[in-house]
């Protein structure tokens, strides 16, 4: 059993890492095509990618959209979760359902719906439009994480703060948010990665200024190239660094 288990684990790792390893290895390919045989190591493709103004602009756009839309989603989700956890409101089950609903809807449908409305209102595709869409997809996540984290312990501390004279904004800022620091940070970073990686909404709702996934998509159209490998490897490096930092500083402490 033990041997079987570890064999399975090893095979799973091979499957999971195979494309990533191929991606990274051939980003150093000293040749025009990122496929075997491997012809030697060069950093030319990285130099080319880092010198590509369009790509760097797209990267900055993505970062901006991701951070701003995640912040908005986090604030909206946290406040809504706080309200539903604290006050008995009529129709609270329905409201919870409405706030969670976008989670169960394909991004393509959300994108097409927004495109329909923006078209008929004469709003042009832009990074703002994309950001609005990204708040829609991340709001359920931020709401659900915040809501699930609000236990009795939390409610008792909030009640004590109110009893000691705190106004509602003070309760939120001095007690609720700090007590939920770890889950809120997790919700924020998850939102950032989802927004950062999101393609279809950004593809349909941007035109001239685009986000990174859309820019990569247009690189793919010109066929296989080690340059695409280099971009992919860089994105992987950044994401993995972020995940590891998150693991060390947020989830470790949360336990």
């Amino acid at each position: 059993m033990r041997v079987l288990s570890y064999t399975y684990l090893a095979l799973a790792y091979v499957f999971v890492f195979l494309p990533v390893v191929v991606l990274v290895v051939f980003s150093f390919q000293d040749g025009r095509l990122p496929i075997p045989p491997f012809k030697g190591v060069t950093l030319d493709w990285y130099a080319k990618v880092l010198g590509d103004d369009d790509l760097m602009a797209a990267l900055l756009n993505s970062l901006m959209v991701a951070v701003v839309s995640s912040l908005v989603a986090l604030v909206l989700g946290f406040l809504a979760a706080h309200a539903l956890a604290r006050v008995r409101l009529p129709g609270s089950v329905l409201m919870r359902g409405v706030l969670i609903a976008p989670m169960a809807v394909s991004y393509l449908i959300i994108a097409l719906g927004l495109l329909t409305v923006f078209n008929s209102l004469g709003i042009r595709p832009s990074l703002w439009a994309t950001g609005i869409g990204h708040v829609v997809i991340n709001l359920p996540l931020c709401f659900a994480i915040s809501y699930a984290a609000m236990g009795d312990h939390q409610k008792a501390a909030e009640r004590a703060a109110r009893d000691l004279g705190a106004a509602e904004w003070q309760v939120l800022a001095l007690v609720s948010a700090p007590m939920l620091a770890a889950p809120l940070a997790a919700a924020f970073f998850l939102s950032v990665t989802f927004s950062w990686d999101e393609f279809i909404i950004a593809f349909l709702l941007t035109r001239f200024d685009v986000t990174l996934p859309v820019e990569i998509w247009s690189m793919l159209k010109s066929g296989l190239s080690p340059a695409t490998n280099a971009v992919g490897s860089l994105v992987f490096l950044v994401s993995v660094t972020l995940v590891i930092l998150l693991e060390i500083f947020v989830f470790r402490r949360a336990k």
């Binding site: 999971v16 890492f17 494309p19 990533v20 191929v22 991606l23 990665t193 990686d197 393609f199 990174l212 996934p213 990569i216 998509w217 793919l220 695409t228 971009v231 992919g232 994105v235 992987f236 994401s239 993995v240 972020l242 995940v243």
Partner: peptide
């Protein structure tokens, strides 16, 4: 870990 690579790039890989 590869979950956190770009979705577009993963298919390309």
């Amino acid at each position: 870990l590869p979950f956190w690579t770009s979705y577009v790039v993963r298919s390309y890989s």
